[in-house]
């Protein structure tokens, strides 16, 4: 068992734990904080996957921007701790648990199937990251330079559209939350 494996297990259990806490806590603020923790764990997982760039933007964008937005909105609402956090209905709740469980199982099963299929068809895939690191998985191949090269050549169109999206969204958000007369108007 190499260090990377241990790291993986710690990080993954942290992310799962915090993710579960997001769902189970009754206070929304605590939920958001647990979500931050979960996202940091996921960033660590990205690191183990030899994707530092992705880990970086995960922290910057998700934990640093999106969740800050969440927290701000929650503070705006100023909600009390809920007595009952979960929706009514035992039968429907049970059905939801069963459905989610089935989903999880099927995804996992599908994952195992597809992985064994991939393994069967290709010889050069490393079976674990430790072996991958040994076989000369050069970190430079995963650098920002390579990513941006792809981004600006093969996925240029999508990239531009994404820019457009990023233009439209703030406009939309402002339009949705406008108040007639501006923020200093008297209602």
């Amino acid at each position: 068992m190499s260090e990377l494996d241990i790291l993986f297990y710690i990080l993954s259990s942290m992310s799962v734990l915090f993710g579960a806490l997001v769902v189970l806590t009754s206070s929304p603020i605590y939920s958001s904080l647990y979500l931050v923790m979960s996202m940091l764990s996921v960033a660590g997982i990205f690191m183990t996957l030899n994707a530092p760039f992705i880990a970086g933007i995960q922290i910057i964008v998700y934990a640093g921007a999106v969740l800050v937005l969440f927290v701000m909105v929650l503070m705006l609402f100023d909600l009390k701790r809920e007595t009952k956090a979960f929706t009514k209905g035992r039968f429907s709740g049970f059905l939801k648990l069963v459905g989610a469980g089935l989903l999880c199982g099927f995804i996992a099963g599908a994952a195992y199937e597809s992985v064994s299929l991939i393994m069967a068809t290709s010889e050069e895939i490393p079976t674990n990251i430790a072996a991958a690191a040994e076989t000369g998985f050069s970190p430079t191949t995963n650098s920002i330079k390579e990513i941006s090269k792809l981004l600006f050549t093969k996925y240029l169109f999508a990239f531009e559209v994404l820019g457009l999206l990023l233009l439209v969204v703030p406009i939309g958000a402002v339009a949705l939350s406008r108040v007639a007369g501006g923020t200093h108007a008297k209602h």
């Binding site: 939801k96 459905g99 089935l102 989903l103 099927f106 599908a110």
Partner: peptide, 14 residues
């Protein structure tokens, strides 16, 4: 929930 169950059925079939 219904969407979820639908997805489950599809994955099952696949």
């Amino acid at each position: 929930l219904l969407i979820l169950l639908g997805v489950v059925v599809v994955i099952f079939a696949v």
